[in-house]
Design a protein around this nucleic acid. Structure first.
Lengths: 139, 139
DNA sequence: ATTATATTTTGCCAATTGGCAAATGTCAAC
DNA sequence: GTTGACATTTGCCAATTGGCAAAATATAAT
């Protein structure tokens, strides 16, 4: 970063995707998040699609409604280096490739929490059966 | 903060004094700190006397030359609340009703997307069976 | 005092942030 | 299809950030 930046980066946007993913997963609309955080929905939208970069003040405001720890978001945004604060990893390892499909999140969110948890119960049952099968084959 | 801030605060400056104090005691001149941190000396000067407020990026750059921990400075600047780490999430109470349970989200997110979608498929299958049963009972 | 030199401050301006309001897109119900 | 109720995006603009270069101020040496 020798001089000024070459006018808005516009590509290479991880933070926006993470924020959007989290907002969808919660789930919230831009307007709801705007109301909960006190940041305008238009600004939030631009941040998500990488047209604006959030300041620390904005990041701090949206942290709680999205269920992030403050320092977690700061680290994700590159304001804080990974080893500072309690966040051990570099962010990409935690969120890249391990995300909840938005459609799935939307569907499940419509169910009562008991049903949601029951679904997870069934999933682990299936997985344990699969493990059993793998044992059989090996024998 | 309802709207915009009433144009530059200009009074009530702790951070600037702390930064200047630290720079003097290191000791460094504005120009030396500028060179060591990559922030212009004029900007640093204005920050010290409270005419500008440093962004997170700037704060991060000057932390090491001044011998601060990053999160220490962030806390001083009010970007980070004093006891920032270790806050467990409580989102379920706030957005009751239409939310995805955090535990469920975490569990599901660890599965590949195909599995996530398969789970939803199974769920709708079960629901359709349940609907059939409800019909039987009514008859 | 007077020049030389180092340090800080100021004037100016491009870049960026973030809000409001209007435009646009989406989607279900009729 | 149209209406209405949403959500998201866009146009515009005020406020702020931060750099460069020149001006002011302090410091030292002769």
């Amino acid at each position: 970063m020798a001089k000024y930046n070459v006018i808005m980066d516009y590509g290479n946007n991880d933070l926006g995707k993470i924020l959007k993913q989290q907002r969808i997963t919660v789930p919230l609309t831009l307007q709801e998040l705007a109301k909960a955080s006190g940041v305008s929905s238009s600004h939030l939208g631009r941040i998500e699609r990488g047209e604006r970069f959030p300041s620390a003040r904005i990041l701090r405001k949206i942290a709680k409604p999205l269920g992030f720890d403050e320092d977690e978001l700061f680290t994700l945004a590159g304001f804080l280096s990974p080893q500072s604060s309690g966040v051990a990893e570099d962010g990409s390892s935690r969120y890249a490739g391990r995300q909840l499909d938005p459609y799935v999140a939307k569907m499940l969110a419509e169910e009562p929490v008991e049903v949601q948890r029951a679904v997870i119960g069934i999933l682990s049952l299936i997985k344990s059966i699969a493990r059993g099968m793998a044992q059989e084959v090996k024998k």
